[in-house]
């Protein structure tokens, strides 16, 4: 018979830890070789014991499970990590996988699906419990019509000062007026303006104003009021 797969549990809830330990140990293929109640202790154990798999909670007292996953993968990039969390929202699941997790289970599914989750992730597969996979697929199905907006990206790159100048430019103020208002020289305003236009990838003031409307900086209908 193969050697038992060695599993590390990191969860701050002792009773819950005990519960899943029992589930895991009831299967002769697996053994729990360590338990930790926080991330730093978990990391230490992971480095020392070199487990075959880690079961990790997201809400931990010291750092978040997301950070823990990343830290853990830095030292042992090959270890499969199965997240077992109270959070059932799709954003948590996405973030866990982004951090490098191999599987995601909500805690209430542990009874029915923990063993399957362990099996799959140990094989190198990704695993998601059915209650969350529905949400994830729905989210994925929505994605095509939600195209990433280039304008937003450009605007996100502006500094606070550039935002300030952009609002004034878009509302039709001259460089001189903006300079007076912000106590800077008109030359500096011009510099800001060309940098803004570069970042937003526009070549004239009309397009800049159009962007400002799309972003919600100004509203042409309310202009006169």
């Amino acid at each position: 018979m193969d050697q038992k797969k060695r599993i590390l549990i990191i969860d701050d809830h002792p009773l819950f830890r005990e519960g899943i330990k029992t589930i895991i140990q009831s299967d002769s293929r697996y053994e729990v070789i360590g338990e930790a109640g926080n991330a730093s202790q978990g990391l230490k154990l992971a480095r020392k014991l070199k487990p075959d798999l880690a079961v990790v909670d997201i809400s931990l007292p010291d750092i978040s499970g997301f950070d823990l996953i990343q830290d853990m993968l830095k030292y042992s990039p090959d270890i499969p990590i199965l997240v077992l969390s109270m959070h059932s929202k799709v954003d948590y699941i996405v973030k866990a996988f982004q951090a490098g997790a191999s599987g995601y289970l909500t805690k209430e599914s542990a009874t029915d699906m923990l063993i399957r989750g362990i099996e799959h992730t140990l094989k190198g597969d990704y695993f998601m419990d059915t209650s969350v996979s529905q949400q994830v697929v729905k989210k994925l199905a929505q994605l095509p019509d939600k195209k990433p907006v280039a304008i937003v990206k450009g605007y996100d790159a502006l500094t606070p000062r550039e935002q300030e100048v952009m609002v004034l430019v878009a509302s039709g103020m001259s460089s001189q007026n903006i300079a007076d208002k912000l106590f800077i020289s008109p030359k500096t305003v011009e510099n800001h303006r060309s940098r803004i236009m570069h970042k937003l990838d526009v070549s004239n003031i009309i397009d800049l104003a159009r962007h400002a409307v799309k972003l919600g900086l100004i509203d042409l209908d309310l202009w006169k009021k």
Binding site: H13, F16, M86, A110
Partner: peptide
Amino acid sequence: AQDLSTLKL
């Protein structure tokens, strides 16, 4: 919620 999950277990 955590306790409830444990309870379920």
